[in-house]
Design a protein around this nucleic acid. Structure first.
Length: 421
RNA sequence: GUGGCUGUAGCUCAGUGGUAGAGCACUGGAUUGUGGCUCCGGUGGUCGCGGGUUCAAGUCCCGUCAGUCACCCCA
């Protein structure tokens, strides 16, 4: 084993494991294309300021999880810990809102957070997500949740839990925070140390603490849903009505909050209960951020988005992903045929057939073993006799049948056998 | 970041303080140019790394790194 290792929490994906990644990525892009999203690609590195202002200064992500460095002693840069802030930045930079009232973007790529790695949680991890700018919802909110549920079902992710909540807008939040702090402060001594600290920095986060003593206190805490203004209430009711009409099961979870400050109104999370997920069971999280575009310097523009963690989706997915196999494998019965094999391989590949061979030498038997292990459905045998006759033996490896055909017919014969599978 | 558990062949794992092992994988063979199944053989090890105790350490102790579980965080 080499002493050179990948950075802790950052992983290689080898060809034998890539099938599952491709399947998730393809399903994601197919789905969002049907819903009208266009792909956006933004840089991995952004000005640190973007995330501090976008995600929130006192969030855990910004406080202790970002990969931040100073570029040549000039600018503080950060490797993106999530995708929304970059999308908003690009949306503003290119004045996209001036060209179209509603913009639907999708992205897929690596994100970086310096957390302690565990199963389903890595320092470089992959997210796929979407953002919609300019539509206040709630129909687009419901459509988005329903789209994700459909995507996950297509991938064979079973046993989902869809949680929704409404955080309200500025006024609601202020009144609720006041009530929550008023409730928690006299009980502060019963809370965990973390929650006591958050009581002053980020009180909403006390709500989803897993510490038993916190949960006991939180169980009796005031609920944000009771504080919603009429407009928020109507928005949330209509969201639920639409989800029901679309046939997507969900559960209202009044204590659902997120660790990013920009969310308001609709908030949702999809959890998996699959055995391999462990404690990292949040597959997907998202919500509305109607104030974010303005906060980052644009005009008031509503927005909503979500992101899903690809590694976690793959842990929860079912189905086999066999590595791709060649269509045909060429075997030579004597070393003199190797140049001949090279030209045959080129002709087959030129005809659109995935063809491979092992021309290092070795017995016919060992080459056949390689053909078998490659997963190819067809072996093509050439030796002195075939070279003289201008033919090749084409063997169907599944059935064990073999035919001698003219060189010009080999590609067609391989295709015929492949289609008969 | 805190605490627990685990690190032995490419993989999954055995291994009483006394000579480093198995299965799978890889590879060669079982008479002419034909795979899978079976049989026989072979390659492959800094026992994560560094200290310590001991006549002797894969085994005991300390540290460290990595993985993992819970917390934390979040996708």
């Amino acid at each position: 084993m080499s002493s050179l290792r990948a950075v802790k929490g950052m992983n290689d994906v080898l060809p034998e494991d890539i099938g599952r990644w491709r399947r998730v990525e393809r399903a994601f892009w197919d789905t969002v294309a049907r819903y009208g999203y266009g792909e956006v690609r933004t840089p991995i590195v952004e000005p640190t300021e973007l995330f501090v202002r976008g995600i929130g200064e006192v969030t855990d992500i910004v406080e202790k999880e970002m990969y931040t460095f100073v570029d040549k002693g000039e600018h503080s840069l950060t490797m993106r810990p999530e995708g929304t802030a970059s999308a908003v930045r690009a949306y503003l930079q290119h004045s996209v809102g001036a060209r179209s009232p509603v913009t639907k973007w999708a992205y897929l790529g690596p994100m970086f957070r310096r957390e302690r790695p565990a199963r389903g949680r890595y320092r470089q991890f992959w997210q796929a997500g979407v953002e919609v700018f300019g539509d206040p919802g709630p129909f687009v909110d419901a459509e988005m949740i329903d789209m994700i549920v459909g995507l996950l079902a297509e991938l064979g992710v079973e046993d989902l839990e869809v949680l929704v909540n409404c955080l309200g807008t500025g006024d609601t939040r202020a009144r609720y925070l006041e009530a929550l702090v008023a409730y928690l402060t006299p009980r502060a001594s019963e809370l965990s140390a973390d929650s006591q600290r958050r009581l002053t920095t980020n009180p909403l986060r006390v709500l989803d603490s897993k510490a038993p003593q916190d949960q006991a206190v939180v169980a009796e805490a005031p609920e944000i849903l009771a504080y919603l203004a009429d407009e928020d209430r109507g928005h949330f009711d209509l969201l639920q009505e639409t989800l029901t009409a679309l046939g997507t099961p969900f559960r209202v979870e009044a204590r659902l909050v997120r660790g990013l400050d920009y969310y308001d109104r609709t908030l949702f999370e999809i959890r998996g209960r699959g055995g391999e997920l462990g404690a990292q069971n949040t597959l997907c999280g998202g919500g509305r951020y109607d104030g974010l575009v303005e906060q980052l310097g644009g005009s008031a523009t509503p927005g909503i988005g979500f992101a899903m963690g690809l590694e976690r989706i793959m842990l929860a997915m079912s189905g086999d992903d066999a590595p791709p196999a060649p269509d045909a494998f060429v075997v030579v019965t004597s070393p003199e045929q190797r140049t001949d094999a090279a030209t045959l391989l080129k002709a087959l590949r030129g005809a659109g057939i995935a063809a491979d061979a092992d021309l290092r030498g070795g017995s016919t038997k060992s080459q056949f073993r390689r053909a078998d292990k490659s997963g190819a459905a067809v072996a093509i045998v050439i030796g002195p006799d075939e070279a003289k006759a201008g033919t090749a033996q084409v063997k169907d490896l599944r059935r064990g049948e073999q035919r001698e055909v003219a060189r010009a017919e080999v590609a067609a014969e391989v295709r015929r056998i492949g289609e008969a599978e």
